[in-house]
Design a protein around this nucleic acid. Structure first.
Lengths: 213, 213
DNA sequence: GTCTATAGATTGATAGAC
DNA sequence: GTCTATCAATCTATAGAC
């Protein structure tokens, strides 16, 4: 049995593998868990520290404020998700293939890393002003990547997109909202959800069949 | 010029018209604003009371706890949004017409009442256990209504839905996420977004064109 | 780097006058 | 029903020993 002072960070998230020293990473993982469960403002620094198996004061050796923890999570999380999206969109194949792959992997990331994703997507408002601006820049990039694929497919006639910005936003919405409702105890695996959503998105942009004559 | 003690509840939401006495309604509106801006836990009872032009103590004449305010908002908000969805789905026309109308009005509601909707959709976790269970019941109803329309359309051959539960969830996601990103200062009106999303959803479930031979 | 102890501010909620 | 005043708890963050 672990004593109360032992680290309790259960769901290790490889997104933060690179963070060192070890104590700083454990604090980050504890914060992800706590922020995802209860939200930034409802989480106490005591809670974070105790999940990392440390005293309340130890947090401040590695992070200046509680907000800085949120910022680090937000930054790494956004970088990871933008990276997934960029890689999928830049990969080979036609525009349908690129779009399907982008949606599938972006959705899968939001399901697999739903704790991190929840913090990333829903705790933005708690960031300080400068940190917020930096994160908004990263968010713009993911939107641009997706819009690029849709635009390319529309130009080539592979897609039919009547409202480019609106459709981009809708597809982003679909993917992001997965973080809100996904649960590992649900019926579907992250990959299955990704495949389903990729199919739905392809149908959203498929050229309409010419009807009648 | 209004003195500091005057009510500052700006965006009156007709969802709460029926609440009386007047002070209780003003507190509710103040709480909606504050919860939407900063989240439940970051909102102080002092903030709510001051938005309603009252002293901190006055809140407790009308509500037992801060959580009870959240519950009232959540309850009324859910009832309204379920009502919109139910009316749209029960109205006349074919299944395509019913689905398009349901999505259009549900999306429009989430945009028009985006402050209320944000609280309704993203502050659920702050509810007490019993209150949470009651709200979950209302949420199940909206999912069932939407699933009913999709099922009916699939049975009649008007739609092609390969994964009923998954598609239902995806359509709900699309609608709900509007509350997260919508801003009145954006380029599109709630009605335009509703119309666009209804079109996208119809395409998601349209039978695939028979290709080739 | 980590701890114990605690400062200093703020919070949700109550008491009691009017 | 509303106010002023305030309590008791809790929070972020720091000080100083080890």
């Amino acid at each position: 049995m672990a004593s109360e002072a032992e680290p309790q960070v259960a769901t290790a998230d490889e997104s933060f593998e690179g963070v060192s020293p070890d104590a700083a990473r454990r604090l980050l993982l504890g914060a992800v868990e706590a922020f995802a469960e209860r939200g930034f403002h409802a989480t106490t620094t005591r809670d974070i520290a105790s999940r990392a198996g440390m005293s309340p004061a130890a947090l401040y050796i590695h992070y200046k404020t509680k907000e800085e923890l949120l910022f680090q999570i937000s930054k790494v999380g956004h970088e990871r998700s933008v990276g997934v999206l960029a890689e999928a969109a830049e990969g080979g194949g036609g525009d349908s293939e690129r779009l399907a792959r982008a949606v599938r992997l972006f959705v899968r990331w939001h399901a697999e890393h739903h704790t991190t994703a929840r913090v990333v997507q829903y705790e933005l408002a708690a960031l300080g002003e400068e940190h917020y601006e930096e994160i908004v820049g990263l968010r713009r990039r993911s939107e641009e990547i997706l819009r690029g694929v849709l635009e390319s497919g529309h130009a080539s006639g592979e897609f039919e997109v009547t409202d480019l910005r609106g459709t981009t936003l809708a597809v982003m919405s679909l993917c992001i909202d997965v973080a809100r409702w996904y649960s590992p105890s649900g019926r579907r695996s992250p990959d299955e959800i990704g495949a389903l959503y990729a199919d739905l998105v392809l149908r959203m942009v498929a050229p309409r069949a010419r009807r009648g004559g």
